[in-house]
C-alpha cells in the first residue's frame, strides 16, 4: 500500500483581538491507499480546521503557519491556485457538514452535479448527464430524480446527493466532515453503510471526521484522536480500543456508554477544555489529567511512536520506552 496523504507538523492559527488562537498545532498523521481514518475529538478541538487546512480553505483571520500536506508527492500548501483547482474534486473532495444546507436550493441536484463535472473534466454535457445518473444510482437514488430540487428530498437523501457529488470526478481521497451529524440514528447508519461500501468498492481513502466514538471504532481501520488543537494519539482501531496510551483516549473510552456492557459505569472527564487563546507551552490536557506532573505544565509533549504504528503525545509513554 502506498501513502496517499501525509500531514507533517501542520499548524493553523487564528488571529483575534484577544490574541493568537492556536487552533491546530503540530498535527502529524498519514493515510494509506484504501484506508479509512477516523479523526475524532470534542467540538472545538480542531478537527474541521485540519480538514480545511488540507484543502487550503482557511481564510483570514486564520492562517496555516507551518507544516506540509503532501498528497501523492505534492505539497498542497505550496501549490498555486491553478494547481489546486485541478486537484480539488479530481484528487480530493469533501462531503460537507450538514448537507441540508450545502446544496443550492434554486438549482436541481442534477444541475449541481453536472456543473462540477463540466468544470473539472473535458466531457460533453450529455455525457455529464449520463454520469450524474449513474452517480445517483450508485448512492441508491433513482437516476431520474436528478431533475428534482433539494427541497424534494429528505435529509438522508440530500446527504446521499452530497456523497454522489463528492464522487463526481472520481477522487482518490474523500474527506467526510461530520457528514452524518443531525440525521436520525437509522438514516445515519444507512449513510455510513453507503460510505463504507463505496470505499471498499472504489478503493477510496477516506478521512471520517466525527465525534461519535462507537461509530468510528466500528468502521475505521485507524483512528486519530485530537484534543484542544493537538493530536494526542494515532493508531489502529484495535490498538486504540484495547491498548489506549494517552490519558485522554482512556478517559474518552470510559465516558462513552456501551451497549454490550450497559452495567459499566461511565466516567466523565473533570474540568473543561482550556481556552486556546495564547495558550502557553504545556500539555493541553494537564488541567484534566489525573497523571499530570511538573513536566506537563512547562513542556509540550511531542507525538512519538511508542510501539510500531502507535503514536501518542504523552510524557508518561515516552519516558517508559527511553
Amino acid at each position: 500500500m502506498s501513502t496517499v496523504l501525509s500531514i507533517e507538523n501542520l499548524s493553523t492559527f487564528f488571529k483575534t483581538d484577544k490574541g493568537i488562537v492556536r487552533a491546530v498545532e503540530d498535527v502529524t498523521f498519514s493515510l494509506e491507499e484504501g484506508e479509512m481514518l477516523g479523526l475524532i475529538g470534542e467540538s472545538g478541538c480542531g478537527k474541521t480546521t485540519v480538514a480545511q487546512s488540507i484543502l487550503r480553505l482557511i481564510e483570514y483571520p486564520g492562517k496555516v503557519v507551518s507544516g506540509k500536506v503532501i498528497l501523492n508527492g505534492k505539497d498542497l500548501l505550496k501549490a498555486t491556485d491553478d494547481e489546486l483547482y485541478s486537484l480539488r474534486w479530481k484528487e480530493i473532495s469533501v462531503i460537507p457538514q450538514s448537507a441540508m444546507n450545502a446544496l443550492n436550493p434554486v438549482y436541481t441536484v442534477g444541475d449541481q452535479i453536472i456543473e462540477a463535472i463540466l468544470l473539472h473534466e473535458k466531457v460533453s454535457k450529455s455525457e455529464a448527464v449520463k454520469r450524474t445518473k449513474t452517480l445517483l444510482e450508485l448512492v441508491g437514488i433513482d437516476g431520474e430524480r436528478q431533475k428534482s430540487f433539494p427541497h424534494e428530498f429528505s435529509g438522508g437523501m440530500k446527504q446521499r446527493v452530497a456523497i454522489a457529488m463528492a464522487l463526481a470526478c472520481n477522487p482518490k481521497l474523500v474527506i467526510s466532515d461530520e457528514s452524518t451529524t443531525g440525521l436520525d440514528v437509522l438514516t445515519q447508519a444507512q449513510v455510513i453503510a453507503l460510505i463504507k461500501n463505496l470505499q471498499k468498492k472504489m478503493n477510496l481513502s477516506v478521512i471520517l471526521i466525527s465525534h461519535d466514538l462507537p461509530m468510528v471504532t466500528a468502521i475505521c481501520e485507524k483512528i486519530a484522536i485530537m484534543y484542544a488543537g493537538k493530536l494526542v494519539e494515532w493508531a489502529t482501531t484495535e490498538e486504540i480500543l484495547n491498548n489506549p496510551k494517552h490519558p485522554y483516549s482512556k478517559a474518552l473510552l470510559n465516558a462513552t456508554p456501551n451497549l454490550s456492557d450497559p452495567d459499566r459505569e461511565v466516567v466523565s472527564i473533570p474540568g473543561s477544555v482550556p481556552n486556546l487563546v495564547n495558550i502557553p507551552k504545556c500539555c493541553r490536557f494537564h488541567t484534566r489529567c489525573p497523571y499530570a506532573f511538573d513536566r506537563c505544565l512547562n513542556e509540550s509533549p511531542e507525538l512519538r511512536e511508542v510501539t510500531p504504528g502507535h503514536y501518542t503525545a504523552c510524557f508518561l509513554e515516552g519516558d517508559k520506552n527511553g
Binding site: 440514528v185 445515519q188 453503510a193 462507537p214
Partner: peptide
C-alpha cells in the same frame, strides 16, 4: 432490531442492511 443492531454492531448492520430495514 434495526436500531439495536446499529448500536451493537455497526458492521453487521452494514453487511445486512437490506434484511434489516428498507430505504
Amino acid at each position: 432490531i434495526a436500531l439495536v443492531s446499529v448500536v451493537k454492531d455497526l458492521n453487521y448492520f452494514i453487511e445486512n442492511r437490506e434484511k434489516l430495514i428498507l430505504d
